[in-house]
Simulated assay, not measured.
Amino acid sequence: MTTAPLIILAAGGTGGHLFPAEALGVELMKRDLRVRLVTDSRALRYSGLFSKDMTDVVPSETVRGRSPLALARTGLMLATGTIVALNLMRRLKPAAVIGFGGYPTLPPLVAARLKGIPTVIHDANAVMGRANRLLSRRVSAIATSLPGALDKEPSLIGKTTTTGTPMRPAILAASTVPFAAPGPDDPLRVFVVGGSQGARVMSDIVPDAIGKLGLALRQRLVLTQQVRDEDMTRVRAVYDGLKIEAELAPFFTDLPTRLASNHIIVSRSGAGTVAELGAIGRPSILVPLPGAIDQDQFANAGVLADVGGAIRVVQSDFTPDRLAAELSALAADPTRLATMAAAARTVGRLDATQRLADLVMKVARLDSPA
């Protein structure tokens, strides 16, 4: 009996990296291929396609500072991880290795390159991440989520394909739910989310903004908010005092369903969030994470804002007054909400998983299924 070819998926241990890897893994398994995940220890807390017996943890480290000691520590960990990854490649003999970004992808992709194994990197951001930039000239092919991500790197265009971001089945299911703008007296459903760890800025700003809304709008509001454990007591106290119907939790396992069931999303603008808002088609107010070297979240938010699907607010302008004004204006204009939802939808690529799987099979020199 012939063993099916193996594809190794390498991803950093955050949802933004793991969810596209999981979506691709599901599609490759449908095509009768085997898959394994190579990642760091953070990924073990996620449940999904990759069970522990399908996961290999490789030592890695993110660049956390520019001091000689910090750089030496990062270099040592990455070198150790590369040795571990080389042993994995010798033992597993994959047909290809696919990286989804984050420093934990460096050891397995470098090891694959040293072993002559075909490699692909996928980048979900509007600006390529640092780890992927380091790998970009050495891999067999590059997949991007958004057109133009490598406009400043013409030498890489020849091996770049715009596939979109692979979507989990739950996102694809949520994308079938049509957007229904609320009437003037209907409940207005607002979902506030801050990323996989929650964002303190949302706890600092949103409750005060809700307090500045007119009484009639507050009475219509149905609020769901991701709140970190350490912020929960103070946030809940504000909403209880305002008599707001609010569901608060540090994490939501059914995020796709919640995105689809709300009228306005207030969020950071990580690549995964922007891709999912595009796939599902929901209006949003996006607050890019400040301070990033590449300003990737600012660029990601711009993808939706430029087509009219989102309002981008830099964090220095994200005040209770500004947020209250934006929510009030949107609540008063259901037609604008519907237009934003439709505009966001134009950014979504629901066939991204299939497109990336096709590229992987081409690079791995595997025959497409009949």
Rank of each mutant, 00 (worst) to 15 (best):
P5W: 07
I7M: 04
E22D: 09
M29C: 15
R31I: 07
R31Y: 06
D32N: 15
R34N: 08
V35R: 05
L37E: 01
R45C: 11
S47H: 12
S47N: 14
G48E: 02
M54H: 09
V57S: 05
V58L: 02
S60E: 00
E61W: 10
T62M: 13
G65Q: 01
L69M: 10
A72R: 02
R73F: 07
L78R: 04
L78Q: 06
G81R: 02
G81T: 07
V84H: 13
R90E: 14
R91M: 10
K93Q: 14
A95P: 06
G101C: 00
G102R: 01
P104I: 01
T105K: 00
P107C: 05
A111N: 05
R113P: 06
P118G: 03
H122W: 06
G129L: 00
L134T: 11
R137G: 09
R138M: 15
R138N: 11
V139K: 00
A143N: 08
P147D: 09
G148H: 08
L150D: 03
E153A: 15
I157F: 14
G158S: 07
G158N: 05
G164F: 06
R168E: 01
A173I: 14
A174M: 08
A174Q: 04
T176R: 13
P178T: 08
F179L: 10
F179W: 08
V193T: 13
G195E: 04
S196F: 06
Q197N: 15
Q197S: 11
G198F: 04
G198D: 08
G198A: 08
D204L: 14
I205C: 11
V206K: 03
P207F: 11
A209F: 08
G211R: 03
L215R: 14
R220E: 00
R220C: 00
V222Q: 01
L223K: 00
D231P: 12
D231G: 15
T233E: 15
T233H: 14
R234I: 10
V235D: 11
A237Y: 08
Y239N: 04
Y239Q: 04
K243L: 12
A249D: 10
T253S: 12
D254H: 03
T257H: 13
T257S: 13
S261G: 11
S269V: 09
A271D: 09
A271G: 10
G272F: 09
G272P: 07
T273I: 13
T273M: 14
I280Q: 11
I280A: 11
G281Y: 09
G281K: 07
R282T: 01
R282E: 03
L289V: 15
D296Y: 15
Q297E: 12
Q297T: 11
G302L: 10
G302K: 04
L304P: 04
A305F: 06
G308V: 06
R312K: 15
V314K: 13
V314M: 11
D317W: 07
D317M: 12
D321I: 13
A324D: 11
A324S: 14
A325M: 15
A329R: 12
A331R: 01
A332E: 12
D333H: 12
P334G: 07
L337N: 05
A342F: 13
A344Y: 04
A344F: 06
A344I: 09
R345H: 15
G348I: 09
L350E: 12
R355Y: 12
L356W: 09
D358N: 15
L359M: 13
L359Q: 08
L366S: 08
D367L: 13
S368E: 15
P369E: 12
A370K: 14
